[in-house]
Simulated assay, not measured.
Amino acid sequence: MNFSVHFDAQTVARLSAAVERVGLTRNRIIVRAVQEWLVKNEAEEWPEDLRDHWRNPAPELSAGPVEFEPWRPAADVSPTR
């Protein structure tokens, strides 16, 4: 499937430098980056404790809080540089 992605000038420059350095095409680098991100961030199923938490109509009565931070989406992909 083809689609369009728009990057800022700094990201394009960094990507172009990576192309020269590793000898892959821009598309191949982008595909690999997305595939790696999905492997790291795609959960097959919600963890049992989280499913139990959402089934409980009165979570304040449960034994304790559910740790949700590890399941927060990694959509906070702001540039680190």
Rank of each mutant, 00 (worst) to 15 (best):
R51A: 15
D52K: 15
V12E: 11
R26P: 01
P65M: 14
R14I: 00
P73C: 11
P59R: 15
D8F: 02
V66F: 13
M1C: 07
T25R: 09
R21A: 10
R55L: 12
L15E: 04
R32Q: 08
V19R: 08
S16R: 02
E44D: 11
R51N: 02
L38A: 09
A33I: 04
E45K: 12
A18C: 09
S78E: 13
E48I: 06
E67K: 13
H6Y: 07
G64H: 15
E36Y: 07
D8L: 06
R26I: 02
Q10F: 06
I29P: 00
R51L: 08
P73Q: 13
A13K: 01
P57M: 08
R55P: 01
H6G: 09
Q35I: 05
E67C: 11
A43S: 12
P47M: 00
E48H: 03
R81F: 06
E60M: 14
W71Q: 12
R32E: 10
L61D: 15
V77L: 12
N56Y: 09
E44A: 08
A58P: 02
L38R: 08
P73F: 13
R32H: 03
S62K: 13
G64D: 13
W46P: 10
R28D: 04
L24Q: 02
N2D: 08
P79T: 09
F3Y: 08
A17T: 05
I29Q: 00
A43Q: 11
E44C: 02
A58K: 15
H6V: 12
V77T: 00
E69L: 15
S16Y: 00
V66Q: 13
A18P: 01
R72Q: 12
E60P: 04
P79R: 07
L24T: 01
T11C: 05
V12I: 08
H6W: 02
V5M: 04
R28V: 02
D49I: 06
L24G: 00
R14A: 01
N27S: 03
F7D: 07
P47Y: 01
F3I: 01
G64C: 08
V12D: 08
R51I: 12
V39A: 07
V34C: 07
K40E: 12
A43P: 06
A17K: 09
F7Q: 05
V39C: 05
A74K: 14
M1Y: 09
